[in-house]
Each structure stands twice: as structure tokens, then as C-alpha cells.
Amino acid sequence: MAHLADVLTYIFENYPSKNLKSKDPLKGLSPRKIIWLAYLADWKNAILNGRQISDAAWKIMDFEPSLEPESLSDVTLFAERKSRRILTPLRTALIGNGLSRQETGLIDEVISIARNRTPEELKQLVYSTYPALSGDGKDTVDMVELARKYQDIMPQRKLQRSK
């Protein structure tokens, strides 16, 4: 299982800029959007492979995925990497990023789905996931258990990997 910081860094480095000539270093990505993409990647991997990609401890409050305090250190590490620019594509290629090829492929699929959606459409996608609909805000979300329940309830809607 990868560190959340690795997932966040991968999303940030691989999310396409809306305007290739743009000098926007954030590529139009807000912290909320990066967190949503990591959440969607964890949820999709839980359904497809029976585990999260990241070690994030997720909590759902009013349909909004948020991170438990123990996961916030990874967010801080991601912010430090980004602000210091110590993770360049070359450095990532040399030292790796803690993600398997399968995991980066799945994250790429999530990025591909998200990049053409408006902020409101992405919000609707996140808020319509089974964990968001079933979360009570009291406990950490067990993505793997919820994926099992989801597949029992909605077997015809099992996600399939893109070909």
C-alpha cells in the first residue's frame, strides 16, 4: 500500500493542465480536487482489487470525504515536496514513487474521468459514491468492507477496468 503523499504527488504531477501555455503551477488543481481524486482512486481500487491504493484513513462528513488526523502528515509531506520542488519527473523516475504500474494506471483512469468534468460534476461524482452516501461522519471509512457491500447490493454495477 502506497503512502498518501505518493498518490497526491502522482496526481499533481500527472494531471493535465487545461491550457498547455498556462504558467499556473497548480494546473487548476485545488487541494480539495486533489483529495477528491485520491479518494476516487482509493474507492475504485477497493472495488476492483479489494484494497485501497493509499494508506489514507478516510472519513465522510456530509457526503464530503476528508482525512483522519493520522493521514494529515502525508498531506503535509506532499505540500513540502510541492513547495520545495524536490520531486521532479526525473527524480521520480530514478527513485520511484511507491506506486505500482497497476496503481498508476488506475489513477490515470480517475484523472481521465475527472479532467473533463466541471467542478460541480466532479462534486456530484464524489458525493454519489457508496462510501459518501453511507458515511455517518463518526468513524473511519472501511473502503474494502464498503466495496464488498456495494458489490453485494449492486452486482450489475461492478466497475470494470478500461481496456
Rank of each mutant, 00 (worst) to 15 (best):
L48V: 04
P25F: 03
L106N: 04
L48C: 05
P65W: 03
L8I: 04
Y130W: 02
P16A: 03
A114P: 07
K21M: 12
V144W: 02
Q52Y: 01
S66K: 11
F12Y: 15
K59L: 08
P31G: 13
T118R: 10
D74Q: 14
V110M: 09
V144P: 03
P69E: 05
M1A: 11
K149V: 13
K138P: 03
I95Q: 12
I95S: 11
P16Q: 06
D139R: 14
L4M: 06
K158Y: 03
R91Y: 13
K82M: 15
M154G: 02
H3D: 13
K44A: 14
R32Y: 14
R51A: 04
A93F: 12
I53E: 02
K59S: 02
K158R: 15
S71M: 05
N19R: 09
E70K: 14
L72H: 09
T118N: 08
A5E: 11
E120Y: 12
M1K: 09
S134K: 13
L29V: 05
I11N: 06
K163Q: 10
W58I: 00
F63M: 07
I53Q: 01
I47F: 02
G105D: 06
D136P: 00
P89M: 05
E145F: 12
E80S: 12
Y130C: 00
I153P: 04
D136K: 10
N116A: 09
V144R: 11
F63N: 05
I111V: 13
I47N: 08
D62F: 13
M143K: 03
T88E: 08
N116T: 14
D108M: 08
S162T: 13
L29C: 06
V110F: 06
A57K: 13
S22D: 06
A38P: 05
Q102H: 09
K59Q: 10
A2R: 03
F78W: 10
D42K: 06
Y10L: 06
R115E: 15
S30G: 11
N49V: 00
P65D: 01
Q102R: 14
D24L: 06
G28H: 02
A2M: 09
I107E: 03
L122D: 07
M154L: 14
E70L: 11
Y15V: 02
V110Y: 04
W36P: 01
N14K: 10
I95K: 12
S100W: 00
H3F: 14
P65H: 03
S71C: 06
R85S: 12
S17W: 02
A114T: 05
E68I: 07
L72G: 03
R148A: 07
S54W: 04
K27M: 07
L122A: 07
R101N: 08
I47T: 09
T9K: 09
L20G: 12
K158N: 08
K21D: 13
L122R: 09
S30Y: 09
Y15T: 01
K33G: 07
G135Y: 00
V141K: 02
L4G: 03
L29Q: 04
L37E: 05
A46Y: 00
Q102G: 08
S162N: 15
